[in-house]
Nucleic acid binder design. Structure first.
Lengths: 230, 230
DNA sequence: GTCTATAGTTTGATAGAC
DNA sequence: GTCTATCAAACTATAGAC
């Protein structure tokens, strides 16, 4: 087996170390914020010394930018994947709930990359933040179009401002990593609650005339999550 | 007029300077997080030099702890005040919506203290965090009881986990300072959207049988907010 | 009350041995 | 690839003049 053929299924030692550094940085970004994430702590968590980090990354900021970049991409990929898995018969509201649940799934999952990307947005240095905004343009458009489709289909409470509703709900899911503890309830349970809450919130009084969905979106999230390769 | 009698209505110069330092720290806590809030930047924003800060505070952490302390207190006071203003005829759901709106009001208002307290919770050093949790015990109980009352009154969708619903919605309002811009819509508008979203979310299918509230909670928030004295 | 000057740490980053 | 040793810069905090 050639090295190239091998690359897909087994990481080289070098890649593993690089990955350990990124994992450590993602974890610290969540707990301490952008400025609180120190190289010395990254090194300790990754089980090596500070200078060894510079073999893999040019600077502290380069590590943190890669974490944020990966986190944004994982979220976007998971949302589009879950949407693609959805039955074509799914309603606009089904699609919206599925998208939020897929986003929440990444925020809460094992790799803290997405949570780190969301939680530290406002703390990034100006140049990093500008590049992140540029990368997030597709995601932003996707979210706006999802909600807009619901409005046009008459599935969303017309008493809501679409932009504010979207941002409030994204805030709800982005903040979840702050309080959710897998020991107090499974991922499946929290995703089900989130979807129910979001469906209620957006449909409002319209919910009565649209009692049950053909395919409960919670089911669309089974089987158990498989983390996408980074 | 004695100094003591004067204290209530007009701040002494010393108090004003102290206040400027706290304002600067609250602002920076929101933008840069706990570790990113530097004494040098606080001093610049407060328009004095770093050593002058030590005339008012024992340490950097003492400033930040006071900001967080004030922020928590302002939120709790505003919520209890808005609830007290509410008609005794208000439903459990009215009370819940009013409470969330009052909390959101503080997160978005001029003084960034509450937003700072909420956003940096997870970044506080262990001892500060422990003291904050101790102070927040009353608020925590209040929120749990508010939701519980709604459940017992049969006004909340039984398909929701009360704790998760509470935390999701608190996250939604705590995160709002990240994206809300007063230039894109008034405070009143955003509070109205938030209340509608929260009412929808919690009532869900029950909303149909409980079409309109006697007194719209948005009205309960007028007249215009007056910031409580710090 | 506020300042200049400065001490003592800690940080991000580099040099160079192995 | 990873280390020890080290540097320049930035940080919190203090001393002491005014």
């Amino acid at each position: 087996m050639t090295k190239a053929a091998d690359a897909g299924r087994r990481e080289r030692k070098s890649d593993k170390t690089r990955r350990r550094i990124l994992d450590a940085a993602a974890d610290l970004l969540n707990r301490k914020g952008f400025d609180g994430t120190r190289l010395s702590e990254i090194a300790t968590l990754a089980e090596l010394r500070v200078p060894a980090i510079y073999y893999y990354f040019d600077s502290r900021e380069a590590i943190l930018e890669e974490v944020v970049n990966i986190g944004d991409r994982l979220a976007h990929e998971n949302v589009t994947r879950r949407l693609a898995e959805l039955s074509p018969a799914a309603s606009a509201l089904d699609r919206i709930c599925t998208a939020f649940a897929a986003h929440l799934e990444m925020v809460l999952m094992e790799s803290a990359y997405t949570a780190a990307a969301m939680r530290t947005m406002g703390q990034l240095p100006a140049d990093m933040r500008a590049r992140q905004l540029e990368r997030q343009r597709a995601s932003g458009r996707m979210w706006r179009e999802l909600i807009q489709a619901g409005v046009e289909a008459g599935e969303i409470d017309p008493g809501l401002d679409p932009r504010a509703a979207r941002m409030f709900l994204l805030g709800a899911v982005n903040w979840a990593s702050e309080w959710w503890n897998p020991e107090r309830g499974s991922l499946k349970e929290i995703l089900a609650t989130a979807q129910r809450l979001i469906r209620n919130a957006l449909a409002g009084p319209l919910l009565a005339s649209r009692p049950a969905t053909t395919a409960p979106p919670a089911a669309a999230l089974s089987p158990v999550f498989t983390p996408p390769a980074i």
